[in-house]
């Protein structure tokens, strides 16, 4: 890399988080898959999160290519912040995935402008909503289901 464009760095950071989130949500989905009807709501959260992070990933790849940058590729595997055991562990993982992605999106907002900033803001909102849904599904009291300052 030559002199790094801060926007490319910010988009790449979001993309790296999206790659990790795609992996983590797929892992959670895999854990939840055989758990029967009781795991249905958590499975749906994992499915939605997986699809959303894939969509975000593709948008970030497009934004980086539009700048002539090379999007960072996904790794073969990621170390998960928590091993998803059962429904509770999977919901915990889903919530943490959103928290981590939110940090990248939050930081990117200050660097990006125009449509790229919109992408980051809207991603941050979506991450916050999904994180809240995962916490509520895990039984977190409503008043504690969302951080006061998502991503910061």
């Amino acid at each position: 890399m030559t002199a790094e464009d801060p926007a490319v760095v910010a988009l790449s950071s979001m993309l790296a988080a999206a790659h990790a989130a795609v992996y983590a949500t797929a892992t959670a989905g895999g854990v939840l898959a055989p758990l029967g009807a009781a795991a249905g709501p958590a499975r749906e959260l994992a499915r939605v999160a997986h699809n959303d992070h894939r969509t975000l990933r593709d948008s970030l790849v497009a934004a980086l290519r539009a700048r002539g940058a090379t999007p960072p590729a996904a790794l073969a595997a990621y170390r998960l912040p928590v091993e998803p055991a059962g429904v509770a562990g999977s919901l915990d993982l889903l919530a943490r995935v959103e928290d981590r992605s939110a940090v990248a999106a939050h930081d990117a907002v200050g660097v990006l402008t125009g449509a790229d900033r919109e992408l980051a803001v809207d991603a941050l909102v979506a991450m916050t909503l999904r994180g809240q849904r995962a916490r509520l599904a895990a039984g977190t009291p409503p008043g504690s289901a969302v951080p006061a300052l998502p991503g910061s």
Partner: peptide
């Protein structure tokens, strides 16, 4: 406000937008 703000304020407004969106749903 976030989309119009400078780099110093925009992340905070993004955070507040996200939090209020979650509150609305809750």
């Amino acid at each position: 406000g976030c989309l119009a703000a400078g780099a110093g304020l925009a992340p905070l407004l993004a955070s507040l937008c996200a939090a209020e969106s979650a509150h609305a749903e809750l």
